[in-house]
Computed example of a mutant assay.
Amino acid sequence: MTEHTRPRIYGTDHDDAGAPLPGHEYVELTGGPLDGQLLDVTGLTPDERTAGAYLITTHSTYGPGGRPSYGPTFSRPDGPWVWEGDVP
């Protein structure tokens, strides 16, 4: 029997997976260095959600501080967001 683990919330401490907060909206990040994490999009406008986000991580192609780009797909604008590549 395997133990089920909940997805980690982006921006939480690595040792603390965090828990989704009631009343918040999350999208799952797929692919790239943040694969499987949840991103809180509660405060984003519809335009910001369409644009996606550059997120900071220590595991990008460019090392600590690199920014992987994640965004929605045209076929599924409400999520999950897919990895589009890394920028320095």
Rank of each mutant, 00 (worst) to 15 (best):
I9V: 11
T57F: 00
H4G: 04
T12C: 08
A53F: 13
L34W: 01
V87G: 12
L34P: 04
T5N: 08
L21P: 00
S60V: 05
T50S: 09
H4A: 12
Q37T: 15
T5K: 13
Y26D: 06
I56V: 15
V82C: 03
E28K: 15
D86L: 02
D40M: 02
L29M: 10
T50H: 10
A19Y: 13
A51H: 12
L29R: 04
P33M: 02
T45W: 07
T12F: 14
A53H: 08
P46W: 07
G66F: 00
G11K: 01
P20S: 00
P80Y: 10
T57R: 01
Y70S: 09
A17P: 15
F74V: 07
P22D: 15
G63P: 05
H24Q: 07
G66Q: 02
P72L: 10
P20G: 06
D15I: 04
T61S: 02
A51P: 05
Y10D: 03
T42I: 02
G63T: 00
T42N: 02
G65N: 02
G18K: 01
G65Y: 05
L34F: 04
G32S: 08
D13Q: 09
Y26V: 04
E84S: 12
R67P: 06
G32Y: 01
Y10T: 00
W81N: 11
G23R: 04
R8W: 10
D13W: 09
W81A: 09
H59S: 13
H4E: 15
G31A: 06
Q37W: 08
D47Q: 13
R67N: 10
P88Y: 02
